[in-house]
């Protein structure tokens, strides 16, 4: 990790690893649970299995945080930076193609 590693960033990294690790299995269960051509009991079992996955296996728990400071709000997702770090780096010419508007 290049930037600051605080507890919230560490949690997010754990969530990302969990999602990556369980993704294929979760997709398979999702396919069975959402497939209307299968029998309801099988679909129900698949849904129960889905509910048994941990919290940090769902893609929705992953949050893009600032890669420099770990800030959770005001992130420009294209750069993975919070608005202040974006400004600092842009003024420092560290973001290719980004320059301050003036007209």
């Amino acid at each position: 990790m290049g930037g600051r590693l605080n507890a919230r960033v560490a949690r997010d990294i754990a969530a990302r690893n969990g999602v990556n690790h369980n993704e294929v299995l979760r997709r398979a269960y999702l396919f069975v649970a959402r497939n209307q051509t299968l029998s309801p009991s099988v679909r129900y079992q698949a849904q129960l299995q889905l509910n048994n996955f941990g919290r940090y296996t769902r893609p929705g728990t992953v949050k893009n945080r600032c890669t420099e400071t770990g800030r959770g709000r005001g992130i420009l997702s294209e750069f993975g930076l919070c608005r202040f770090q974006f400004r600092l780096k842009a003024l420092n010419n560290e973001l290719p193609g980004v320059k301050k508007a003036s007209w």
Partner: peptide, 20 residues
């Protein structure tokens, strides 16, 4: 048929690479 869950690309690999 749930086909969209199989057809969609896996998002994990790119998620893991988010932080440098």
């Amino acid at each position: 048929t749930g086909a969209k869950y199989l057809k969609a690309r896996l998002r994990g690999p790119s998620m893991v690479k988010y932080y440098p």
